[in-house]
Design a protein around this nucleic acid. Structure first.
Length: 238
DNA sequence: AAAACCCACAACCGCTGTCAG
DNA sequence: ACTGACAGCGGTTGTGGGTTT
């Protein structure tokens, strides 16, 4: 027995660690993370390994900016489910709960700050709780699966639209709708950052380099495909 | 050019749920 | 029925890079 106990590593992962983890997961599958952590030779906890895999190394992950469509989807799903990030993430193929959570945080903070600037002190409801602030927005509250596909609000109809329909529909305008239901207009706005469904979908870096393996990818895709019409083209991963 | 600020992302922590023994 | 191990989830914090002043 080796009795030399090294400290469990924390902090950023190195490429070498990533490679070790990827190879170990390929060998043993995506479970028993404590076991994987041990046999991989990484001085990491199983938890840490799992997180690294799920959020960064997993094949099929999209990288890069959220597309306008994804932004709208997040908005809608968050309105339905609140901070159920993993649940929301399941509806966004290639995105992780962590990613969505971060995105939401960043944007909500931004919006909250803008609100503070723009609004008088009298109406001080936080945008973080818009769900309860604007119950009159039907698509936001209590919508179920069918409603999502047959609903009548602006957001819902946008969600139903094709990407072409969404061109020029700005995230800011969506936020405006939430904050002031009915006040939505579709003119092109000032913030060009949202105006094109750009978001270059970059591959997961490690996977790109080390594991051009077919069957791992298939496993994941197979899960997503029926629900989302997820296609290989989306991620340009392999 | 440098400092300050902002944003996006990665990672950790603590808690909860699940399941096998 | 109980318990411990493991997996997953949501919240939070840290950090690096880009942008603005």
């Amino acid at each position: 027995m080796v009795t030399v106990r090294e400290e469990t590593r924390k902090g950023p992962w190195t490429e070498q660690e990533d490679l070790q983890l990827v190879c170990t997961v390929r060998l043993f599958g995506e479970r028993r993370w404590d076991f994987i952590a041990k046999v991989s030779g990484l001085n990491r906890t199983g938890k840490s390994c799992r997180l690294r895999w799920v959020n960064y190394l997993h094949p099929g992950l999209k990288r890069g900016r959220m597309t306008p469509h994804e932004e709208r989807l997040i908005l809608e799903l968050h309105a339905r489910w609140g901070n159920r990030w993993s649940r929301i993430a399941r509806r966004l193929p290639g995105r992780t709960d962590n990613e969505i959570k971060n995105y939401w945080r960043t944007h909500m903070r931004k919006k909250a700050q803008e609100r503070k600037k723009n609004m008088s002190p009298s109406s001080s409801t936080s945008s973080l709780t818009y769900q309860s602030c604007h119950p009159e927005t039907p698509s936001i509250l209590g919508i179920d699966e069918q409603e999502l596909h047959g609903g009548s609000s602006c957001i819902t109809s946008i969600l139903k639209g094709t990407p072409a329909d969404m061109d020029g529909y700005l995230m800011d305008q969506i936020w405006m709708e939430i904050e002031a239901p009915g006040a939505l207009s579709f003119h092109n706005g000032k913030d060009s950052a949202y105006s094109s469904p750009s978001g270059p979908l970059l591959p997961s870096p490690m996977w790109d380099h080390y594991c051009p393996d077919e069957h791992l990818k298939m496993d994941d895709e197979a899960k997503m495909a029926p629900q989302f019409g997820y296609s290989k083209g989306m991620g340009a991963i392999y």
